[in-house]
Design a protein around this nucleic acid. Structure first.
Lengths: 175, 175
DNA sequence: ACCAGATAGTCAGGGCACTGAGTATTTCAG
DNA sequence: CTGAAATACTCAGTGCCCTGACTATCTGGT
């Protein structure tokens, strides 16, 4: 009765009635928005429960180098899911703080070979304990079986999306 | 037989055998790492399928202003989950591109009141369609019931983590 | 009317993340 | 052996994201 299409057309700026609202979307059904919120929530918890100076990506890089000392930057990026530029920044910070050792590969002058220093190993060990604790708190709202589902669903979505970027690795000739 | 503890202690830098590996963790069991990967995967898909110039956070802000024109920055940040500084940046960009209108509140000189421009409404409408398509692609690896679980789990973890930051809003005196 | 505290926004600074251009090095075809 | 392509890295530019310090404004108690 009171609200018809003409009113809807007019009220662009003045009123904030059902007309304007109808055009908007519920962000809580947008996975990207949820992913960002999740990531932020984690960031916050990390800085309070794990470390203020060593960030989660830095720990990821350090962890990779503990697992496989002597990796070059490109491979590290592959392992943790970062592009060359970002890896360079993160490694640069770790290097400046004396947590990793960065040397030119004598065999291949393009590469920088990375390995954790003793201090890097110590930091890695210390943060590992704290990170485990933080993960427990972070995942506390989920039952154990839900946590498994949580991991599975996120991994599947992420892997599929990344697959869209790197279509058909040349393992064999496509049909 | 071949590998014992002594070897483990020595090989800090030279070899990358089981000893070093044992100290490292599997990042795929770290929710924070998965969250970051998920967010990046989404970012990538957004820029290719939705828009190169308007980012997902920008769309989130725009969408909020379409739903509730006349909001101030602080409230927008509350809605989309961003702090004041980030909101200021995002709004600044939207303003510079003429997608939102930013005026001083005559009633309260501290506030900036925001509303989408006509161009902002057009962009919002166009991106909404594309975003919906993108979400379908993004969530395609999950069955419909899994998608519901996906949303539910992420929301619960995120809400709980944010609850840790804002403990006990003063709605009533705690026990 | 006044001043202390709360509130909204800005700014500086640090870190993550990407693209695209440019450099150095290696590799491989001819 | 030589030049083109591939590769590893760096650098510039843009944008998101936070904290902490600062400014301007408003509010409430005296």
């Amino acid at each position: 009765m009171t609200v018809n299409r003409d009113v809807y057309r007019q009220c662009t700026n003045e009123c904030d009635d059902a007309g304007a609202r109808m055009a908007a979307v519920d962000l809580t059904t947008h996975p990207g928005h949820l992913a960002r919120r999740l990531q932020q929530a984690h960031y916050l918890l990390w800085t309070t429960m794990v470390s203020e100076e060593t960030t989660s990506p830095q720990y990821a890089v350090l962890n990779t180098l503990v697992a496989e000392p002597g990796l070059d930057q490109r491979t590290v990026g592959e392992r943790v899911g970062l592009d060359r530029s970002t890896v360079a920044e993160v490694v640069g910070r770790l290097d400046r703080r004396g947590l990793v050792d960065k040397v030119r590969d004598p065999q291949d002058g393009r590469r920088s070979l990375l390995r954790p220093t003793d201090e890097g190993l110590r930091v890695h060990r210390r943060l590992g304990v704290r990170a485990a604790r933080m993960n427990q708190v972070f995942l506390a709202p989920l039952a154990p079986d839900e946590q498994a589902v949580f991991f599975d669903l996120i991994r599947r979505v992420t892997d599929a999306a990344e697959g869209l970027r790197h279509p058909a690795e040349p393992t064999a000739a496509p049909g």
